[in-house]
Amino acid sequence: MSEQSGTGGTDRRILERISEMVEAERGLRAALVEGRIDQSTEHRELKEIEEQLDQCWDLLRQRRARADAGEDPGGASVRSVDEVERYES
C-alpha cells in the first residue's frame, strides 16, 4: 500500500489502531470460547469495536481520497457512527 507524501505518519497510526482493534476482537472471541465472558458481553463489546473500526476505515478512506484529489488529508474528520453506518449500507 503506497502512502501519499505528508499522510504516512497519521495513516500509519490509524492502521495501527485498526490492528489493535482486530486483536481486541480476537481476544473477545477467545474469552467467550474459554468461558471468561458471556455471550452478551462479547456481543456488546464487539459492537463497540466494530463501530470504531468502521470509523477508522472511513477516516482512512477520507484521507486517501483527499490526498488523491490534491487536497490536504488533514481536513478529513472522524464521522459519527450513525453517519458511517449509513454509508456502509
Rank of each mutant, 00 (worst) to 15 (best):
Q4E: 12
T7D: 02
G8F: 15
G9I: 15
T10L: 13
D11F: 10
R13H: 10
R13I: 12
R13L: 15
E16L: 15
E16C: 12
E16N: 15
R17D: 06
R17G: 00
R17W: 01
R17F: 04
R17N: 07
I18G: 00
S19Q: 09
S19A: 14
S19T: 02
E20R: 05
V22N: 09
A24E: 02
A24F: 01
E25Q: 13
R26C: 07
R26L: 07
R26I: 06
G27I: 00
G27K: 02
G27W: 00
L28Q: 03
R29D: 10
R29M: 11
R29T: 07
A30N: 11
A31P: 11
V33Q: 09
V33I: 14
E34G: 07
E34M: 10
G35D: 10
I37M: 12
I37P: 06
D38W: 08
D38I: 13
T41F: 05
R44I: 04
L46F: 03
L46D: 00
K47S: 02
I49A: 01
E50V: 04
E51C: 11
E51K: 13
E51G: 15
E51M: 06
Q52N: 12
Q52R: 10
L53C: 07
L53M: 10
W57I: 13
W57L: 15
W57H: 15
W57G: 06
W57M: 09
D58V: 00
L60Q: 14
R63E: 05
R63K: 15
R64T: 13
R64W: 08
A67T: 04
A67I: 01
A67C: 03
A69S: 09
A69F: 08
G70I: 01
E71S: 06
D72N: 15
G74F: 08
G74H: 08
G75V: 03
G75S: 10
S77R: 05
V78T: 13
S80V: 04
S80T: 12
V81L: 05
V81Q: 02
E83P: 01
V84N: 03
E85Q: 14
E85C: 02
R86Q: 12
R86L: 07
Y87C: 08
E88M: 14
E88I: 15
S89P: 04
S89A: 10
S89V: 13
